[in-house]
């Protein structure tokens, strides 16, 4: 039984990793007022570029760096379309999703050709902590990108709640007019958050292609970016709650796999539904602690108009 719990939770932690990066990035973007539905496309670009770099150079750090840069460039483009061109954010995001999906597949086809594997980040035991019974096995014998994802939660919490920058981000998302009159550069803040979000989406992709799966295939993410956006709403724009959402979704998914593997006689289609149903139900049950979305979310800022 102990082995099973360890196995399931270890799976959950791994599954949660890409969601965490992408969701935290999206959270910060949304807090500043920009909705980006294109996360999945950026993740795919990050996954491809990291994989390609590692395949050609064998350098994992460089692969990660390239994913961050590519994600950042996509973030910049998304910011330009959404902030400067004030596009309808829900739809531009779908455009970026389709573009990223197509471009990453095209590049894969022309630059790599066939499905191959690389040796990615391997599990890294943290001294002392990894020796704690059960907990050590679950949490402290993962690869470095898993640690990074979990470290991101307190870091982003701190930035958002305890620093002037975080205050500015929130102000820009809640009361852009007021923030503007106080001299906060709204455009700059939004560019910053969206580019940062793009970088995190790039890492999310890399965490799949050079850490967890170590392969690249067309549409590798299979819609994970959309789930990541959904988890932002689950977490009500708070990093800690986003973490709990990602863990809930992933744990139920891990349990679901385990139910199937153990041969418990439920049609697989129903067990596969579980994570999605549980996420909705849990969120509905917590309805009372409702948090309003950032007031300016999905609304371009137009001074004095």
């Amino acid at each position: 039984m102990e082995a099973i719990i360890i196995g399931v939770l270890k799976s959950a932690i791994r599954l949660a990793t890409p969601y965490l990066y992408a969701s935290i990035g999206e959270t910060i973007g949304q807090l500043s007022g920009v909705l980006n539905l294109g996360v999945d496309g950026v993740m795919l670009m990050g996954a491809f570029s990291a994989f390609f770099t590692v395949l050609k150079t064998g350098n994992l750090g460089l692969g990660l760096l390239v994913a961050i840069v590519v994600g950042g460039i996509f973030g910049l483009l998304i910011a330009f379309v959404n902030v400067t061109l004030k596009a309808q954010q829900g739809i531009s995001g779908i455009g970026f999703y389709i573009f990223g999906l197509g471009l990453s597949s095209l590049l894969f086809r022309t630059m790599i050709g066939t499905v191959q594997t690389v040796s990615g980040f391997s599990p890294l035991s943290i001294p002392l902590l990894s020796n704690i019974p059960i907990v050590g096995e679950i949490f402290f014998r993962q690869n470095i990108l898993v640690y990074g994802a979990f470290a991101l939660v307190p870091i982003s919490w701190f930035i958002l709640n305890k620093t002037p920058l975080g205050l500015s981000i929130r102000a820009v998302g809640q009361h852009p007019e007021a923030a503007d009159s106080l001299g906060v550069n709204i455009v700059r803040i939004r560019y910053l958050t969206v580019i940062f979000g793009g970088m995190l989406s790039g890492i999310a992709g890399a965490s799949l292609s050079i850490a967890l799966l170590n392969v690249f295939q067309q549409n590798l993410t299979n819609g994970m970016g959309f789930i990541a956006v959904a988890l932002v709403y689950f977490g009500a724009w708070r990093p800690l709650s986003v973490l709990s959402g990602a863990l809930l979704f992933s744990t139920v998914n891990a349990i679901q796999i385990w139910i199937q593997v153990k041969g418990i006689n439920i049609p697989s289609d129903f067990t596969l539904m579980l994570p999605y149903i549980v996420t909705i139900v849990v969120l509905a049950a917590m309805a009372k602690r409702y948090v309003r979305p950032p007031k300016a979310l999905n609304k371009p800022f137009e001074r004095g108009e």
């Binding site: 799966l213 295939q217 590798l220 299979n222 998914n253 593997v261």
Partner: peptide
């Protein structure tokens, strides 16, 4: 197409 889930299934 769900490569990640297939890989976790293998782990399990």
């Amino acid at each position: 197409s769900d490569v990640a889930l297939a890989s976790e299934a293998a782990q399990t």
